[in-house]
Design a protein around this nucleic acid. Structure first.
Length: 110
DNA sequence: TGATTGACCAACT
DNA sequence: CAGTTGGCCAATC
């Protein structure tokens, strides 16, 4: 069940993101530490989605609070709609209260 | 099997 | 201030 894959840890962290919060690829990578580069986090989500592994990847954004991966959700607006549905406010494709909704796994999960 | 790309980040020019 | 480069590591072509 627990594979020591870097990806599987990414999935767990993403799944643990509370409602109405978001985190960044770099934050997850940093939390996982070794072998963690932000690109791998993005790759993990990409492979996961295409591997029949449904994860709330819409709660993961880039460091700017910008929806960089919105195009990978099957639609350019799907990701924003999902986040807005959780109470997150947007300004275009950028999160307004990013500093308030930002959830750092290394702080919350220890 | 080698080369390219990729949902990023940070630094440098 | 904007564009480019390097780095990270794995998957796809």
């Amino acid at each position: 069940m627990n594979d020591d894959n870097f990806f599987n840890r990414v999935f767990e962290v993403v799944i643990l993101i509370p409602y109405g919060r978001v985190t960044s690829y770099g934050a997850i990578a940093k939390y996982l530490g070794a072998g963690g580069s932000a690109r791998m986090v993005g790759w993990a989500l990409n492979t996961a989605n295409r591997s029949f592994v449904p994860i709330p990847a819409h709660r993961v954004v880039n460091r700017n609070g910008l929806l960089s991966g919105k195009r990978h959700f099957g639609g350019p607006d799907v990701m924003r709609q999902l986040l807005e549905s959780e109470g997150i406010v947007f300004e275009g494709d950028q999160i307004v209260n990013f500093g308030k909704v930002f959830w750092d796994p290394s702080l919350e999960l220890e």
